[in-house]
């Protein structure tokens, strides 16, 4: 029997091309990454902007660098200030993007991407967010909004990690929960909904999603594949013509299967 307070962490997700990218034969420019650590997990999702020539590459560098930076720091220091850690991770992500852009002789704006990073620990959930997309947490069966799309008047405008003002655009929020769900713009409409002008979490999607993923583990199912299948379903693709990324992290009592 596991110790009463023993928990383990699971993270899963998928990025799939939106209908517009499929139609125009453009590869998916979203990306996601995860790191499972002792007593914590980190996940990141990013949406490379279509207007940027290498937006997809920017998204990939952003998620891999930010999650890698958080993992290294958490392995070295078990009790860091997570908000500061996320700021540093986003900054490292931007640095690596800039380096890649420089190597290729192009402006960093060619790699324009959003970034949403979340860290789930035994005590809290902390999210760092630039641009659109959304992040919600789940505690028991109660979902809460942790981070929403950044302010912009028009639907086709967003802030980017690659912007000069990225530090002022980085929004850090924290909460509690045993699960965290992150989505890029393409599928944020599945986890948060507008209701009389305000965003609210969409429980009919969030609760069964997390509970099903938890139960799939004991069946030995590939959670990434399950999420990928969900995102490519016709009803999800009807939400938006954008690329879609959904990443879920949660902790369970006991030891890993």
């Amino acid at each position: 029997m596991p110790e009463l307070n023993e928990r383990y962490y699971v993270a899963c997700g998928a990025s799939v091309a939106g209908t517009r990218h499929i139609r125009d034969q453009i590869p998916c420019e979203d990306a996601w990454a995860k790191a499972i650590l002792p007593g914590a997990l980190a996940i990141a999702v990013a949406d490379g902007l279509s207007s940027a020539e290498s937006g997809g590459k920017g998204a990939e560098i952003a998620v891999n660098t930010s999650v890698g930076t958080i993992a290294d720091a958490l392995m070295a220091d078990k009790d860091p200030d997570i908000s500061n850690l996320i700021r540093m991770a986003a900054g490292k992500g931007r640095e690596n993007i800039e380096r890649d852009a420089c190597l290729n002789g192009v402006e960093i704006s060619s790699y324009a991407t959003t970034l949403l990073v979340a860290v789930l620990t035994n005590e809290c959930v902390v999210c760092g967010h630039i641009g659109d997309g959304a992040c919600v947490t789940l505690s028991a069966d109660i979902a809460s909004v942790l981070s929403l799309p950044g302010p912009s008047e028009y639907a086709n405008e967003t802030a980017a990690l690659t912007g000069k003002n990225w530090e002022s655009q980085l929004r850090i929020s924290s909460g509690t929960g045993s699960a965290v769900i992150c989505a890029t713009d393409g599928c944020q409409g599945a986890i948060v909904r507008r209701d009389e002008g305000s965003f609210i979490p969409y429980n009919p999607f969030i609760v069964p999603l997390v509970r099903s993923l938890e139960s799939y583990i004991s069946e030995g199912r590939d959670l990434n594949l399950e999420i990928s299948d969900l995102l490519t379903s016709s009803r999800m693709q009807a939400l938006s013509s954008d690329d879609m990324t959904l990443a879920v992290g949660f902790c369970l009592p006991g030891e890993p299967f």
Partner: peptide, 19 residues
């Protein structure tokens, strides 16, 4: 196995389109 796909389990909302 495989019958309970996420698509059939989760509630997928109607799209809220920008105007």
């Amino acid at each position: 196995m495989g019958l309970d796909k996420l698509e059939d389990i989760v509630g997928i909302p109607y799209p809220q389109h920008p105007h």
